[in-house]
Design a protein around this nucleic acid. Sequence first.
DNA 1: TCATTGTTCACTGGGTAAGT
DNA 2: ACTTACCCAGTGAACAATGA
Length: 227
Amino acid sequence: MLPLSKHLHCGRSKKKNEEVKKRGGGFTKICSLSPQLQKFTGVPELPRTEVVKQLWSYIRENNLQDPSNRKNIICDVTLRELFDVDSIDMFQMTKALAKHIWPLGASEPPPVASTTKDKQRKQDREEEPDEPKRKAKRQKGANSAFLASLPLSDALVKFLNTGENALPRSDVIKRIWDYIKQNNLQDPSDRRMILCDDKLKELFEVDTFQGFTVSKLLKNHFIKPEQ
DNA sequence: TCATTGTTCACTGGGTAAGT
DNA sequence: ACTTACCCAGTGAACAATGA
């Protein structure tokens, strides 16, 4: 049995990944560089991966790794201009690089929080390991989509006869079912089947329908706001 | 089980390196 | 092989309400 993450990515094609790479998306997205980094690389824009590559080439060419601890980079004048320190851990170096790189179009890097995004994500997972908490977190946004009022078609406004021209989907379904029960429109031999009276026929343009399909039939009666 | 929609979540991948 | 650090677009699943 594959872990969930593996399942999730079974559907993601290799071709698509290559397309993303080709057009410079994700990791290989081209970014704006700080003046210091522009001076170092000689170009105003580069993907982060390329910047890291160039940095390491420079470090090796100039023999800037600490011989006693090769994880430590001894900064020469050029690197000191970039990182503002005399020496830097190689892991810290990529972190320090963040303030020199930002998305194209932005005038400066976004503010860096005291904890990094990955750290924050990790922390979030650790703080909320149990399913109920995650579920509670999800409910917030999920509800908003369901409970949002949608503009109704003229036919539906006429059918409801309340003067309201916008209602949540769930509310409309509830009212349709109230109407069905009030008017005893369920087929006695199969209560899942709804026998339309003239009013329902006018709304849905069918003689009968399965109770399950109410929401499907209502689809055309909710007007989607323009994007 | 069915149908609807929008939001949230968890996850992946490329590149670099040394140490465990 | 994994860790550590950074970047982020894209993907699919889950979930919410409603009825019998």
